[in-house]
Simulated assay, not measured.
Amino acid sequence: MAVISMRQMLEAGAHFGHQTRRWNPKMKRFIFGERNGIYIIDLEQTLPRVETAYGFVRDLVAGGGTILFVGTKKQAQDPVKSYADKCGMPYVNERWLGGMLTNFETISKRVNKMLEYERMQASGEFDAMIKKEALLLDRELTKLQRNLGGLRSLKKAPDAIFVLDTVKEHIAVTEANKLGIPVVAVVDTNVDPEVVTYPIPANDDAIRSNSLFARVIADAVEEGRFIANKRNPAPAPAVEKTPEEVAEFEAAQAAARDAAAQAQADRDAKLSAARDQSAAASDADRTPASVAASTTGPAANTEQPQTAPAADAADAPVPAGADAQADTEPEAGAEPTEVVDTTVTEAPGNESEAAEVAATTPDSVASDQADATEATADAADAETTPES
């Protein structure tokens, strides 16, 4: 399907050129004839060139490129602005500032300054300033918006430009050619088509004609963007939620967290109970004696003490009463003799303390004890031997 038809161009007056005395000989190949002192443009050559320009712009935008709309004369200002805004491309429709392409870095700084002023105005900082200072900034902002308002979305130099009336926009065309930027333009009978990369022979002085070709380029941009989205589908935009939906979502998240925490607590309780049960079963399977020894310490000695043998009984000490009786009954014919009581009575006390004392007795005490033992033995011998 053709991008544009012959009837549409005829109705828009795209076939009218300039007066015969105002022409460029290089446009002779695109002139059909002359009528009433006005050149008539050959629209049969315009159709294929419109198709070529359309395909170029479409492929450029499909590859991620940008195209700058340029038209500063009165017949082109409104079409350029409306169709550039429609397709989301930058534009210049008030005045072309020298260096917009060749000195793009400086122009971008001015654009950023304009955006900063707009932010200050929106936040109410202008109202807090002195009246004169706020008035000066407001005037500067108005001037920047008029000249650079269409470049707010341009972050780098454009990949191509679309120009209406290359005679008036000769500076833009010169800068583009210097930088090697392709130029798509509507060329009338008074312009040089050799400085344009994709010329479209048509009337550039009629509002309807300019609107027609600006619409064609805008359609090419939209189709190219559609192709780009098909090649690289963009993620679906996030849908903004209402405060009620946000509150409901947060409540659901909180309930889910509480349920997860409760489930974790139940699992921990089950694991703890299973662990305690297995420990009790293992304790029951162990030996009772080993369990008692390990839990209550060494068992108490409940056995009765054994009786001493007869030999030990002879060595047992004689009670004090028996010795006294033996002393009071001397043998016949024997003179009474004094008997020394050598029975050593231990002072009452704790056995453990006695053991400590015995362990800590010096050698002199041990020798005294040995002498006492020998004296006891001699006394016993004296008792059993009668005096001669």
Rank of each mutant, 00 (worst) to 15 (best):
5 S>V: 00
6 M>C: 05
9 M>D: 07
20 T>V: 11
32 F>A: 11
46 T>V: 12
49 R>N: 08
67 I>Q: 01
77 Q>K: 14
79 P>D: 10
84 A>R: 05
89 M>C: 14
90 P>T: 12
92 V>K: 11
95 R>P: 00
97 L>W: 00
102 T>L: 06
132 K>M: 10
150 G>E: 08
151 L>A: 05
151 L>W: 10
158 P>K: 01
160 A>H: 03
164 L>Q: 12
172 A>G: 08
174 T>R: 14
185 A>M: 06
186 V>L: 04
187 V>P: 04
192 D>G: 03
192 D>V: 04
192 D>S: 10
196 V>Y: 07
200 I>G: 06
212 L>P: 01
216 V>D: 05
221 V>K: 02
232 N>Q: 15
235 P>H: 04
236 A>P: 08
246 V>T: 13
254 A>R: 15
258 D>T: 14
260 A>N: 02
260 A>Y: 04
261 A>C: 01
261 A>T: 10
262 Q>F: 03
265 A>H: 01
269 A>M: 11
290 S>Q: 14
302 T>R: 10
308 A>R: 13
312 D>S: 10
316 A>N: 13
318 V>F: 09
320 A>W: 04
331 E>W: 00
333 G>W: 00
365 V>K: 11
367 S>K: 10
368 D>G: 02
377 A>V: 09
384 T>L: 00
